[in-house]
């Protein structure tokens, strides 16, 4: 005999009365499987409260996090990619762009803005991974150029938050030369002795690592971000064995001497402010 007896027969709730759990109420950490409410996750700046996994966030979130009173003026906001090569792979580049613009509500993979950080003028550029993997094409290069020009005009520091899979293949030679272009602008900034702080977030790879992301007067990163030149899969294929644990993480890159500091997202504004003080006092 069973220990419990059903008092009702089967499921009696009618379809109309069924209570649905709305989507997106919960966040499950991909690293440690901890489950928190999306609200708590957001309040914790999209960082897992248990393992401190920093979830990818976009320019909107970083601008809100860093600019005083969440106020800023966007630079070159209306720039969009041309298709100089008429590039077509499995679908035309133009279509990919349109789809990405529609899906993300963004014009390209980087936004630049001027505002105040602890009452001091700064120009911040921030990449958006949601837009074709944060890939660098002509628009990313041009907006970094605009940001650098604005920093020179205001005689203020430049911060670039990187988050990119690398160069945008669909702009081929043009995208390669954005590495040169962005580096060129940084030499002008350097000649004016204006500080440039590079913030590397998950992931920063390829042509972005091999240009502006590694050229900061200070290079700082969020914890456990993937940072490298070649992607882990390519390196694995090259060496033919498994990669050591923690390979190409922020901590690994810091140990090998290419980062100044690893900063938790909640401390990012305070640390940037502190460094700006060091440069300006």
């Amino acid at each position: 005999m069973g220990w419990f007896t059903r008092t009702k027969e089967g499921i009696t709730t009618s379809t109309e009365e069924k209570k649905e759990t709305p989507e997106g109420l919960w966040y499950k950490c991909p690293e440690c499987d901890e489950i928190v409410t999306s609200e708590d996750h957001e309040n914790n700046l999209w960082v897992c409260p248990k393992c401190e996994h920093h979830e990818k966030i976009g320019s909107d979130e970083y601008f809100a996090l860093l600019f005083d009173d969440q106020r800023y003026t966007e630079l070159g906001a209306d720039l969009v990619a041309g298709d100089p090569l008429g590039f077509v792979d499995t679908k035309p580049y133009k279509e990919r762009l349109a789809k990405s613009r529609q899906g993300s509500g963004l014009n390209d993979a980087l936004r630049a803005a001027e505002g105040k950080l602890d009452k001091r003028t700064v120009v911040i550029s921030c990449m958006d991974f949601r837009f074709i993997g944060g890939s660098m094409g002509s628009v990313v290069g041009e907006k970094i150029a605009i940001a650098a020009d604005q920093a020179m005009k205001r005689k203020c520091p430049l911060v670039i938050i990187s988050k990119s899979g690398g160069a945008r293949m669909m702009e081929a030679g043009f995208s390669l030369m954005q590495m040169a272009k962005t580096s060129a602008k940084l030499t002008q900034l350097a000649a004016k002795r204006l500080p440039y702080i590079s913030v590397l977030t998950d992931p920063t790879t390829g042509g972005v690592t091999a240009s502006f992301a590694m050229l900061g007067d200070l290079n700082i990163a969020e914890p456990k971000a993937l940072i490298g030149f070649a992607g882990p899969r390519v390196v694995k294929e090259t060496i033919g064995t498994d990669l050591p644990k923690g390979f190409q993480t922020s901590e690994f890159v810091l140990e090998h001497g290419f980062l100044d500091l690893i900063v938790h997202r909640k401390d990012l504004k305070a640390k940037l402010s502190q460094f700006i003080t060091f440069f300006q006092s």
């Binding site: 091999a210 240009s211 502006f212 030149f229 070649a230 390519v234």
Partner: peptide
Amino acid sequence: PGLEAEERGQGEAIAR
């Protein structure tokens, strides 16, 4: 694109 190249900062070397 090797392991040691990453350890010794391939990206930084090219950027520099």
